[in-house]
Design a binder for these strands. Structure first.
Lengths: 218, 218
DNA sequence: ACCGGGAGGATTGTTCAACAATAATCCTGT
DNA sequence: ACAGGATTATTGTTGAACAATCCTCCCGGT
């Protein structure tokens, strides 16, 4: 979502991606109410344009409308986490299983892992989380399917939202770097089957972990 | 997309679904330009509200923005058809393979097949097409996954758009009714594996057919 | 006849101001 | 303490305005 786009596409979309980034980065917290007038003046745009941006993000599941009360940052639930992981399994595993080892997205995967490792060495765990998500986007990019890629982009924004809800200790992201490294290694070696199996493990482990963190919340 | 929603959700969304229905029903043809002032006055809403609706539908892939020229009804290409069928396979086949035979969506599948047959007997082929798509939505509903269901709803709108582009002979929809009947029968009998195989055949056949029709166009 | 280049009109992009409708808050009288 | 009504804040929707951009068509030069 919050990636390559823009140009002259229009102010509303630009605002939408900016808001999306703020949500993903944690500047806007889940459940927070977004007042139209306040944000419009802050971002120096008109209320109408802001409303267009809100509509966009509502469609993406980043924001939530309440009929006559306004928009709020979406708050992820256990049910939504389960749903997201289910969809992830459905998309990512076949994507990896049918991967062409010399697809350009493999390089993206490698870059994402490297970046995650660098960020981990500086203890910037939020950046590690972003890099890990970029890794999985690269996996989906292996399919060359615009619709699957767009769908997954939405899922990943929602996922970042959920991560933002949790406390951010190293344990949330650090263990997965080496797993990702193993996966990309297998793909580069041409062993898609094994890579897909590893990914399945990854997803199971990650899902369990995030659910457990969630349960420890409220 | 153009289904259960509404209530007090807001005028823009209501307009969006109405436009979406018009697109799906063929009242708005692919490639057609949508003038803001014209539609705003016709539908008796303000231009601002209409623009919000446009933004919504752009996100769904129903409309297309061209920077300083306006919005157009999206026109499906061969590439998009291929992409849609790829995503359909990825989602529908596992959905069916893991189906619980007494899931309520099975009844929806049965109803859709019955309806398609009735419409075929009256030679209303557009309605047959809609019923067939409803059948496949019901398949995805077997997953109980809100995100997959929403994603598939988008795909199905795009698909209807593509059908609208084609000439509408019986051959486009009629052969698939009996295939659908066979699939729902297998599910009711608890033979998911066989149902999934049948679905795979269905999709392959349907894709070949639509691609051939497409090639015969321009 | 052909081509370049404005002039003018149409349409979008964005803003602003206004008001009705609804929800939240506060105040008051018991 | 609390029910109920008045007040305020916010959203929902509209209309008008103006700049920016694109399209068309006409005109003049070669």
């Amino acid at each position: 979502m919050a990636d390559a786009r823009e140009q002259t596409t229009g102010l509303a979309e630009e605002i939408a991606t900016r808001l999306c980034e703020q949500v993903a980065s944690g500047a806007l917290r889940p459940g927070q109410r977004l007042f139209e007038t306040k944000f419009a003046t802050e971002m120096e745009i008109s209320r109408n344009t802001l409303r267009e941006a809100f509509r966009l993000l509502t469609r993406d599941g980043v924001l939530r409308y309440e009929p006559n009360r306004g928009v709020f940052v979406a708050v992820p639930s256990m049910a939504s986490i389960l749903d997201i992981y289910r969809a992830r399994r459905l998309i990512e595993v076949p994507a990896l299983a049918q991967a062409w080892p010399r697809h350009e997205a493999v390089a993206r995967m490698r870059l994402a892992v490297d970046h995650a490792e660098r960020m981990a060495s500086v203890l910037d765990w939020r950046a590690v989380g972003s890099a890990n998500i970029e890794f999985h986007r690269a996996i989906v990019a292996l399919t060359d399917s615009p619709r699957l890629i767009a769908f997954f982009a939405r899922l990943s924004v929602e996922l970042r939202l959920a991560f933002g809800l949790l406390k951010h200790p190293a344990v949330l992201h650090e263990p997965y770097i080496s797993l990702n490294r193993a996966i990309v290694q297998r793909i580069e070696d041409g062993d898609q089957k094994c890579a897909a199996d590893l990914l399945e493990d990854y997803l199971a482990k990650s899902e369990r972990m995030i659910m457990a963190s969630f349960a420890r919340l409220d």
